[in-house]
Nucleic acid binder design. Structure first.
Ligand SMILES: NC(=O)c1ccc[n+]([C@@H]2O[C@H](COP(=O)([O-])OP(=O)(O)OC[C@H]3O[C@@H](n4cnc5c(N)ncnc54)[C@H](O)[C@@H]3O)[C@@H](O)[C@H]2O)c1
Ligand SMILES: NC(=O)c1ccc[n+]([C@@H]2O[C@H](COP(=O)([O-])OP(=O)(O)OC[C@H]3O[C@@H](n4cnc5c(N)ncnc54)[C@H](O)[C@@H]3O)[C@@H](O)[C@H]2O)c1
Lengths: 212, 212
DNA sequence: ATACAATTGTGAAAATAATCACGACTTATT
DNA sequence: AATAAGTCGTGATTATTTTCACAATTGTAT
């Protein structure tokens, strides 16, 4: 909603900054410089200052940033006070791992429900999250805006269409399938096999030295 | 080693192209245009042509690309005929999911061994991969060049130092910790909480319409 | 043969992102 | 009070990535 002039590259780093600021705060640190933060998050300090500057003047020259103030600012900016409900589809290896993980720790997101096609899984719960049958998706989803997709690739398109029809806004897609959605839905792909393979490619074809 | 003029953005897409070309080949398709491929992988067709062009003229004007030829080319380029051995550290929720997954399917990478600190896990195997005690890391790793890190964040730095000392080349880091390594080691961070949170941020702050 | 439709490869332009470098200001020290 | 050291915010620059747009070429149909 607000200002959408913030570069995407910046937006992707915000949750990272937020997490490290939280760490600093818990450590009792009162202030932090872009240089210190840079060493912690491995992002160039000029990039950090530039990122912050899109939100105005958050720091003080010669001093740095007040941890508590900055944390509070990012809490608001990242809507940390508002819970985002998430549904997970496919409670296999990967889905189960996510259900056991507490995304709430540094996060305003919570997996509220899971779906699976396997009747052995339906009716149980994992990590306190109830598992419903995928046939009941439309009945149970109840306005949840974000879905994590961890079904087999072959099932990805079908489920996606149903998620779109039911009005989902965002999908975090872990399947190797590149799903098709209307422009009103945002998809982030996390392709673990590609990540592993591209790491290997970089190792073999790039001089081991600079950047990450 | 070879030409390192290939842009990083391009290099990251290569495994994706490779996988979809494999799919097409299995479907018996003989040729493909950048437009078709674009619809499948959701990358602009001009970008695909540009990516391919870094490797020379792989296609034919007015025709497109020969699937088998292109596949063979990428197989060589991505060193698909050479196995890359991988070690996984931390056989918890996420680590276990990866051990159950067959990265070999479209891939030249294989998890050969896993390590954990929990004596209940040591000595067993998951998905056919033996689990050793983390104390035996140096003894067992045997020149493996790539590690997947799925330990608790607090253990990340210690393990990383040991991996570096033992001569690792690349680390796929799933912990929220931003680990420190010398320039000779490449780290790719996959930060699932950040991915989820940044998706939520985009949904709330960006007009639902263009790009992905 | 010829015409037509399809599609590449790429120069040029545009968009996006990262980095440099410095003036202005803050805090700490003497 | 003056000085020194530290640090931000940002204009300018550079680097990287994406996209446009079209001449050149190919395959197909008549
Ligand atoms: N596990 C990994 O390490 C890994 C790595 C890379 C990619 N992936 C991808 O992530 C996805 C999930 O992987 P996984 O290892 O958890 O697979 P999995 O087979 O363990 O789990 C898939 C789950 O989805 C359920 N399912 C199947 N069809 C369904 C449907 N139509 N509706 C609802 N649920 C359905 C199955 O019952 C199962 O519980 C796959 O697409 C896989 O390719 C996984
Ligand atoms: N599970 C998720 O969905 C998820 C999501 C986001 C991030 N992460 C991150 O991924 C990492 C792993 O998550 P998880 O859910 O699998 O955690 P987990 O606690 O289930 O597993 C961690 C494993 O590491 C082992 N371990 C602990 N200390 C060790 C050491 N020094 N050497 C070797 N092994 C050691 C533990 O015995 C355990 O088996 C964590 O850093 C977590 O923050 C996980």
């Amino acid at each position: 909603m607000e200002q959408n002039k913030i570069p995407q590259a910046t937006a992707k780093r915000l949750p990272l900054y937020y997490r490290f600021l939280n760490n600093l705060h818990h450590q009792g640190k009162l202030r932090v410089s872009s240089k210190e933060l840079s060493e912690a998050v491995k992002v160039d300090s000029a990039t950090i200052r530039r990122d912050f500057s899109y939100f105005g003047a958050l720091g003080k020259k010669g001093y740095g940033y007040n941890v508590e103030y900055l944390l509070g600012f990012f809490r608001k900016t990242l809507d940390q006070d508002e819970l985002t409900e998430v549904a997970l589809i496919g409670t296999g290896n990967l889905g189960t791992a996510f259900l056991h993980y507490n995304f709430m720790k540094n996060n305003n997101t919570k997996i509220m429900m899971a779906f699976d096609a396997n009747p052995d899984k339906v009716g149980k719960d994992i990590g306190g999250v109830p598992i419903y049958h995928i046939d009941d998706l439309e009945k149970k989803i109840n306005g949840v805006q974000v879905a994590i997709l961890t079904v087999p690739a072959a099932a990805a398109d079908g489920i996606t269409n149903r998620l779109v029809d039911v009005g989902i806004s965002g999908i975090l897609n872990f399947t190797p399938a590149r799903i098709t959605v209307p422009d009103s839905v945002r998809v982030h792909h996390i392709d673990l096999a590609v990540e592993l393979q591209s790491l290997v490619y970089f190792l073999k074809h790039y001089p081991l030295d600079t950047e990450e």
